[in-house]
Amino acid sequence: MTVASDIPETESWFHKNQQKIAPWLFLAPGILFFAVYVIIPIFQSFNLSLYEWDGLGKAEYVGFSNYEQLYWEYVDRDAFFISLKNNVIWLFMYLLAIPAGLFIALFLNQTVRGIRIYKSLFFFPFVISQVVVGLVFSWFYNPSFGLLNTMLDWVNLGPVNVLGDENLVTYGIIIAGLWPQTAYCMILYLTGLNAVDPEQIEAGRLDGAKGVRMLWHIILPQLRPATFIAFVVTIIGALRSFDLVSIMTEGGPFGSSRVLAYYMFEVALSEYGFRMGYGAAIAVVLFMIMMCFIAYFLWSMYREEKGH
């Protein structure tokens, strides 16, 4: 006679695949929030860019009319052209934060007296808000009482109105943005330097590598993950720059310091009549530019990893 307890119990599908399912259960809340607050709004922006809508009334489908207007603004060197040109300047100048952050991190990675004080000083810009950075540099550039013009007076160069000069204003704002961005890159590289293999450094020293050769052939290859993150974050920061422009100049003088993010705010929510569809078209263009740069760096890293 067969006893019920002798019959082997069939394991459920969940118990069989428990190890495969567990990671996805932990990731599910993050994926859900990412989808709701990032992925879905991206598609909504694409959809909204095909409409003419003031945010209150009925949306009117206009197809690619908003993108055509952006094109003609670019051809006529109007506000969109100025904003795009400024974003390109932001992009290339902002990349200076990466080597600057690397060299500061190399300095702070040394065991010297008072290194904690230096680390605190260099870390400070990262923890303050962009609004504070904008206000500090607005005072610094002030032609009446700013520290910049005080120092220029010492060498008889006279006052310079950085934020009031159409040719200088964009560069002045970018310098203000480089201050906290360099601190962020420094933190990334400090973290990466803690993971550098000391055995490889010792092997390099035995082979006679030191200084620039040690940095180029041994340290930098091990800092590739930190460099990749620094590039991506810096590019995104340059292309979505808004806070400093808004605080320091509000796009002036005469719209010469506009960037795409600020122009999008102007046309969608400010003086240009609440053109939500047109603002969404600008956002889509900005998103596509970001994706091109990020895809390029991802592909470059993939090829390097595959080559090794």
Rank of each mutant, 00 (worst) to 15 (best):
T10A: 13
F33H: 04
V36P: 10
I40T: 06
L50R: 10
Y51M: 11
E52I: 06
D54K: 09
G55L: 07
L56A: 13
V62P: 00
Q69Y: 12
L70R: 07
Y74G: 14
R77A: 08
A79F: 12
I82R: 15
L84V: 15
V88L: 15
I89L: 08
W90G: 02
M93L: 13
Y94K: 02
Y94R: 05
L102A: 08
F103H: 06
A105E: 07
A105R: 09
L106A: 08
L106W: 10
F107H: 07
L108T: 06
R113I: 04
S120V: 05
L121V: 03
L121D: 07
F126N: 06
V127R: 00
I128F: 09
G134F: 05
L135A: 09
V136D: 00
S138T: 02
F140P: 01
Y141T: 01
N142F: 03
S144A: 09
V155Y: 06
V162E: 12
Y171K: 02
I175G: 07
W179H: 01
T182M: 12
A183P: 02
Y184F: 15
I187N: 12
Y189T: 12
L190V: 10
L190T: 14
T191E: 10
G192V: 07
G192Q: 03
A195S: 15
R205N: 15
D207P: 06
A209N: 09
K210V: 01
G211E: 12
V212R: 14
H217S: 15
L220T: 12
Q222F: 13
P225G: 13
D243L: 11
V245R: 01
M248Y: 04
M248R: 00
G255Y: 10
G255D: 07
S256M: 02
L260M: 15
A261R: 02
V267I: 11
G273V: 00
I282E: 10
F287Y: 11
F293Q: 02
W299A: 14
S300T: 09
R303P: 05
E304H: 10
K306G: 11
